[in-house]
């Protein structure tokens, strides 16, 4: 099994920013997006998020799985909740509305009547939901493709996470190639003994049990290795002093600009939402 991160240098505008500035700005935008149900405002956020995707120079071939997943997930939720049942948030903001399509069915024998009306309000609300989900999805989709996995540790330390927590993330990224190799060696060894991972006989429970000969050796070997690593780190007095990092991050003026823009957007959105009560569900009449 070849396990590799999706990152490769793309010489894109996005990669020129400090990763800390990107995380901070992304979270500021996330909290801004979820304040609104107004299609006009959500369209602005959608454009910003999609602009980031284009500026990141990532291709459809690389990201199509993620987009398809997002489309399937959001469509199931929106069709069930907004188009069919019309309950939840939509019930609170829309109420009844002008039907664009409706039908009535009377079920024979029991005499039940089913009435359904698809209103213009529901369709606009569905659009608002799509814009919200896709803006948030696009905002964070670019991260694995445009952020070097080697600098996640120092990035999160720079954002304010404790040393040990940041080092845990850094270490986890570094363990992945080793553990992926161990997993592949285990799969090969078990296959050489007649193990069939893809065998579908025996139902779901048997399939899960069949995974045990792969998971157990890899897990136990890594725990044994972990004991040695922890001892080695203790011998080197890990955690006694503030940690230094091999990679150093330094803010440049565009990073301050990005953080400032993110912060400003969030402040404006908070004022709009809670100060001026703007941003509730809106559609053109």
């Amino acid at each position: 099994m070849l396990v590799s991160f999706q990152y490769r240098p793309r010489k894109s505008v996005i990669e020129r920013f400090d990763p800390r500035a990107r995380w901070i700005a992304s979270f500021a935008l996330l909290f801004s997006i979820v304040l609104f149900w107004d299609v006009r405002l959500l369209a602005v956020f959608f454009v910003i998020a999609m602009a980031q995707v284009f500026l990141a120079r990532i291709t459809w071939k690389e990201t199509h799985r993620a987009w398809i997943l997002l489309i399937i997930l959001s469509t199931i939720m929106i069709v069930v909740n907004t188009i069919i049942t019309g309950s939840g948030t939509i019930a609170g903001v829309v109420g009844s509305g002008k039907p664009v399509f409706h039908f009535e069915i009377k079920i024979p024998l029991v005499g039940w009547e089913i009435r359904y009306a698809l209103t213009r309000e529901r369709l606009w609300f569905a659009l608002a939901q799509y814009l919200r989900v896709f803006s948030i999805g696009a905002l964070f989709l670019v991260i694995p493709f445009t952020m070097d996995p080697r600098i996640y540790g120092v990035t999160f330390r720079g954002i304010g996470l404790p040393d040990k927590l940041a080092f845990t993330m850094d270490l986890a990224f570094r363990f992945i190639p080793t553990l992926a190799r161990d997993y592949q060696v285990t799969v090969d060894a078990q296959r050489a003994r007649g193990f069939e991972l893809e065998k579908t006989e025996g139902g779901l429970f048997a399939q899960i049990r069949r995974v045990a000969p792969l998971i157990v050796p890899v897990t136990m070997n890594s725990i044994l290795a972990g004991e040695d690593i922890a001892n080695a780190m203790d011998l080197r007095c890990f955690g006694l002093k503030k940690r230094t990092w091999v990679e150093a991050l330094k803010y440049q003026w565009p990073d301050y600009l990005l953080i400032g823009a993110g912060g400003l957007i969030l402040i404006i959105c908070l004022i709009l939402r809670f100060g001026l009560n703007f941003g509730n569900f809106w559609f053109p009449t």
Partner: peptide
């Protein structure tokens, strides 16, 4: 720290595999 990192990497690799 070590076992959190190992656990996270294992979870990621085994989920993927």
């Amino acid at each position: 720290v070590v076992f959190s990192a190992i656990g996270a990497a294992l979870y990621a690799v085994l989920s993927y595999g």
